[in-house]
Amino acid sequence: MFAVLLLSSSTKAMSAASLYAMLLLSACSPDDTGTDERKPAAPRRQVAKATKPAATPAPAARVVRLTNDSLAGQPFGPEPTVPELLSAGGQVVTRQPFRNLHEAGQIDTILLLKHQGNLFEFYRAPEKDLLRDASITNFQPEYGRRLRSRMEAAHRPAAGTNEQVKIGDTERANYVSVTYHSGRMSAVHIEPYVD
């Protein structure tokens, strides 16, 4: 019974498809008068393409690696704190609960804070806030000026060069990446070790 219904449905579908195909073919073929009403295609004009001068590739940034325990461990000198940043106009972007790996049942917080275009990520536990990550592109705040002067004391690129300076400590736990464009410091990324 099922096979008969299926065969009947497929026969109707084939009939509909055949009818549709015949209609399409009759609409496309010329009529009995022998005249073709289609207009001849206009010749295509070729447009001259403007050639772009070959772009000169930007010089690749030179990577410099330094080991400096003081800079990698405390790049700001005195580190900015959450209360200082908030009182200076910083804004909390996100708060994310995080299970403490050392204290059973304790839930801490990962806090992402933005201050004058700079981003800070802190691990907030009841006893203290630990800086987990910082991206600094604005060196106008006090902590930015301290950071810049400490980095410039450690390394000065030649004028007009692009460099990426990676500073680590001897234990390979703390890292600071400094980007220079045209010999000027443009960004600092800080990755301190947090257990």
Rank of each mutant, 00 (worst) to 15 (best):
H155I: 06
R156E: 05
V4K: 11
V82Q: 04
K128Y: 11
P59I: 12
C28D: 08
I167R: 03
L101C: 04
G160R: 06
G73F: 08
F120T: 08
V47G: 06
E171R: 13
T51H: 08
R146K: 10
L113F: 04
I167M: 03
H181Y: 01
L25F: 06
S8I: 06
Q106D: 01
T81G: 12
P192I: 08
R145L: 09
L147S: 02
G144R: 00
G77E: 11
F139K: 11
N68M: 12
K39G: 02
T11H: 01
T33K: 09
R132I: 03
K49L: 10
F120H: 13
S135P: 00
K39A: 11
S149Q: 14
K12M: 15
Y175R: 12
L71R: 01
L85V: 01
P157Y: 01
T67K: 15
Q74N: 14
G117K: 05
S186F: 04
D36F: 10
S177V: 12
N68E: 04
R62E: 12
K166L: 05
V64N: 00
T109D: 12
G77I: 10
S8L: 09
P57D: 13
R146I: 02
P192W: 01
R172A: 04
L5T: 12
A134T: 12
T81H: 04
S177Q: 14
G34M: 12
I190H: 05
H102W: 13
R45F: 05
P53M: 02
S177I: 15
L113T: 03
T33Y: 02
F2A: 07
V194W: 06
D169R: 01
E84I: 03
Y180G: 04
L147N: 02
R65T: 09
F122G: 03
N174D: 14
N118P: 01
E84H: 05
L23E: 09
M1P: 10
A41D: 10
S18N: 05
T51F: 05
N162S: 09
L119E: 11
M185I: 09
R156M: 13
A134I: 05
L119K: 08
F122M: 11
H181I: 04
Q140C: 02
A153P: 01
R145M: 08
M14Y: 08
T33D: 13
N174G: 02
Y20S: 14
T51A: 15
V176I: 07
P53W: 11
E79I: 11
M185G: 00
G73M: 07
S15K: 11
L6Q: 04
I110D: 01
F98V: 13
K166S: 02
T67P: 03
G105P: 09
K166H: 08
